[in-house]
C-alpha cells in the first residue's frame, strides 16, 4: 500500500478514511486534524492556557506532544495514584511522564494522592468501602476532583484529556444500552465551563485508539504499555472489543456511531427534565466545587471518612 501524499510505502492504513500514509505524512496529518477539531468544536484558542491531564499512557502523552507542536500553551498535570500491580504501574508511568516533559522543556504539575491526602487510591477505596473491592470509582472521582481543583487554583482556562474515539464510542455504547439520557446529553468533545467547574475538552475524540498508538510509536513517544492492573476484564475493554469486531466488518462504523450521535444530540434528540437541569446548583463548603446535593461533595465526604471525622 502506498502513501496517498507521496507514493512511498505506507506505514498506517485507515480503512475508515480510505487513507494510507507514510510515517512522515502521518506525523503531519495527526496534528493537522487535531487542529481542525479544536477549531470545529471551538475547544480553545492560542491565547488560552490549557492544562493537559497526562497519565503516562499513549493517548495523553500524544495529545500533549501534538498541542506543544501546534504551539498551544499546554502544561501537564499528573496524578500519582499509588497503584503498583506488582510492576510499579504508577511509579513507572510517572517516570515516563516526567521524562517526556523534561525532554521537551514542558511544565508538569504533580498531585500525589499519598503525599497530599495521606492515602493511595487503592487504600482510599479500601478505607471508604467504595466500589466493591475495585478502586476504579474512587479513582475516577478523585481524578475529576483534582483535575478541576488544579485547573481552577492555577488559573487554567481549560482542561484537556486524551480520550480517543474508542473511549467515547465505548461510553456512548454503554449509555445507549442503558438509555442514560442524563449522561448522553452531556457527552461530547466540549463540556463548557460552569460555576466552579473548568471547561473540559477532548481534542483526540475523533481519532481511533489505533491511530493514537500509531502516532506514539512513529513519534517515538515512550509510554506505559502495561494496562492498569485494575482495568483487566473491565466492561470498557469488552465494549471496545465488541465495537472492533463490528469495525472489522464495517470500516467506519465506530466513527459514524459517535459523529452521528453528536449531530443528533445537537439537533435536540435529548432534553433534560427540569430536575436534571437544576442539578449541580450547590457548592461544597469544603472545596468550593459544585455538587448535586447540599453539603460537602463526594470527594470531600470520602476524605472525612478516611480521617475519621
Amino acid at each position: 500500500m502506498k502513501c496517498r501524499k507521496c507514493g512511498q510505502k505506507a506505514s498506517v492504513n485507515m480503512r475508515h478514511h480510505k487513507l494510507a500514509l507514510c510515517r512522515e505524512h502521518y506525523l503531519e496529518w495527526i496534528p493537522e486534524q487535531t487542529e481542525r477539531f479544536i477549531k470545529k468544536y471551538r475547544m480553545f484558542t492560542r491565547d488560552e492556557k490549557v492544562l493537559v491531564a497526562v497519565s503516562g499512557g499513549k493517548d495523553s502523552l500524544a495529545l500533549w506532544d501534538v498541542l506543544w507542536r501546534l504551539g498551544y500553551q499546554a502544561d501537564g498535570m499528573y496524578i500519582a495514584l499509588g497503584i503498583d500491580g506488582g510492576f510499579g504501574y504508577s511509579s513507572r508511568s510517572q517516570q515516563l511522564t516526567e521524562k517526556f516533559a523534561a525532554e521537551r522543556g514542558l511544565e508538569l504539575h504533580v498531585v500525589d494522592m499519598e503525599r497530599d491526602y495521606g492515602r493511595s487510591i487503592p487504600l482510599l477505596a479500601e478505607s471508604t468501602h467504595r466500589g466493591k473491592g475495585k478502586p476504579c470509582s474512587v479513582c475516577g472521582l478523585s481524578k475529576r476532583h483534582e483535575m478541576n481543583r488544579l485547573a481552577r487554583d492555577l488559573g487554567y482556562d481549560v482542561l484537556a484529556t486524551g480520550h480517543n474515539l474508542d473511549d467515547e464510542a465505548a461510553v456512548l455504547f454503554s449509555n445507549t444500552l442503558n438509555w442514560a439520557g442524563e449522561y448522553l446529553i452531556r457527552q461530547g468533545p466540549v463540556l463548557p465551563e460552569s460555576p466552579g467547574l473548568a471547561r473540559k475538552v477532548k481534542p483526540l475524540c475523533r481519532f481511533y485508539e489505533r491511530e493514537m498508538a500509531a502516532y506514539s510509536l512513529l513519534r517515538g513517544i515512550e509510554y506505559i504499555y502495561e494496562e492498569c492492573p485494575f482495568a483487566e476484564g473491565s466492561t470498557t475493554i469488552f465494549y471496545k472489543e465488541l465495537l472492533n469486531r463490528l469495525e472489522e466488518k464495517q470500516p467506519g462504523v465506530k466513527l459514524s456511531f459517535y459523529v452521528k450521535f453528536l449531530e443528533a444530540r445537537d439537533g435536540g434528540l435529548f432534553t433534560l427534565t427540569p430536575e436534571e437541569a437544576k442539578a449541580a446548583l450547590h457548592t461544597c463548603p469544603s472545596c468550593g466545587q459544585p455538587t448535586s446535593a447540599p453539603g460537602k461533595c463526594t470527594f470531600c465526604r470520602m476524605l472525612d471518612v478516611v480521617s475519621g471525622k
Binding site: 500500500m1 505506507a10 506505514s11 498506517v12 492504513n13 494510507a20 510515517r23 497519565s55 499512557g57 499513549k58 493517548d59 479513582c139 475516577g140 481524578k143 474508542d166 485508539e209 489505533r210 493514537m212 498508538a213 500509531a214 510509536l217 512513529l218 504499555y225 494496562e227 492498569c228 485494575f230 482495568a231 483487566e232 473491565s234 470498557t236 475493554i237 471496545k240 472489543e241 472492533n244
Partner: peptide, 24 residues
C-alpha cells in the same frame, strides 16, 4: 510498522502492539 497486506516471510519476527486500553 507493517500493513495488513504485507506478505510474511520465513524467519520474520512480528511484534504485535495491543492498542486497546481500559483505564480512564
Amino acid at each position: 510498522l507493517i500493513l495488513e497486506d504485507e506478505i510474511l516471510r520465513d524467519g520474520d519476527e512480528v511484534v504485535l502492539v495491543a492498542v486497546i486500553s481500559g483505564g480512564g
